[in-house]
Design a protein around this nucleic acid. Structure first.
Length: 273
DNA sequence: CGCCAGGTTGTCG
DNA sequence: CGACAACATGGC
């Protein structure tokens, strides 16, 4: 079998562990120090960072733009980090600590579903449910991987069909999301480019999607980098580390600041005891 | 065994 | 509005 390798050169501000294992995507498995295996856009690949070379195995040259886009390589994270660091000394510290995080440009429906699953749940178990969802209803790929199931496929399922996932009370939310998305009731273009509050309300038409799941979907699925999702970690961090800051104070790249703070906080739980 | 997890919903005051 | 229990499941 022929193995195609795509190499993207001169990549900066990227740490695969920080980016792929920081709770924005639940589809990647670490297989070596700087190497992950996973699926995005229906393509199963292995990604490895050798210095400033990002190697993507099992990817044809024609997918170069797709992977550059997925890892958000056209955005100047160094510049954004300097801008954010000037806002607050603790944000400066968090940004330095998490400097290798990039906001992935995931598929909107996949981001929506995985963050529906994330509610009142832990990352380990979220990954398990997502994996069972793909194995059960996605399309098989080489190497034992599976695509993320489409909204159309999932819209034909019932809550009982999802029982093997052990998603609990979230199962009916997934079905509602699949039905509304497949029926065209969710305007992705509005979510991507419309007024932020309107985009939020668009997603909150789905049962089980509140403010936080909407914010995560907009940030990780539609690259609305002004989104500032507030989960339990972020609420603690805002109280303890940024008592003088409001979410709006973080500006148009608030979502990137949010990821820096989220990762920094999660890696330093002793700060919140 | 009890607490908690990248929350949302429904209900009650 | 704001507070608060219920919701399934399983890791620790």
């Amino acid at each position: 079998m022929t193995e195609s390798v795509l190499v993207i050169q001169n990549v900066s501000d990227l740490d695969l562990v920080q980016t792929l294992d920081c709770g924005q995507s639940f589809r990647w498995t670490q297989i070596a120090d700087h190497s992950f295996a996973g699926v995005a856009f229906g393509r199963a690949v292995t990604v490895t960072l050798d210095g400033t070379n990002l190697r993507i195995e099992n990817a044809p040259e024609s997918d170069r733009a797709l992977w550059e886009d997925y890892f958000d390589l056209s955005l100047d994270y160094g510049g954004i980090r300097r801008e954010l660091s000037a806002l607050h000394p603790v944000l400066h510290e968090a940004a330095d600590y998490a400097a290798g995080i990039r906001i992935l440009r995931q598929e909107p429906y996949e981001a929506l579903c995985t963050f529906i699953i994330s509610q009142n749940n832990n990352i380990k178990r979220i990954k398990g449910i997502v994996q069972r969802l793909c194995e059960s209803f996605g399309e098989p790929l080489a190497g034992g991987y599976f695509t993320f199931p489409t909204a159309e496929t999932m819209s034909l399922l019932s809550v009982e069909d999802l029982a093997p996932l052990r998603a609990g009370f979230r199962a009916r939310y997934l079905i509602d999301a699949a039905q509304k998305v497949s029926a065209g009731e969710i305007d992705w273009e509005l979510c991507r480019t419309g007024d932020y509050e309107q985009a939020r309300r668009e997603l909150m038409k789905i049962t089980g999607v509140g403010v936080k799941v909407a914010d995560c979907t907009l940030l990780f699925g539609l690259h609305r980098v002004e989104a500032f999702p507030l989960d339990v970690w972020m609420k603690r961090a805002m109280e303890r580390l940024f008592p003088d800051m409001r979410p709006a104070d973080f500006g148009s790249y608030a979502g990137i600041a949010q990821q820096y703070i989220f990762h920094f906080s999660r890696m330093h739980p002793e700060m919140f005891v």
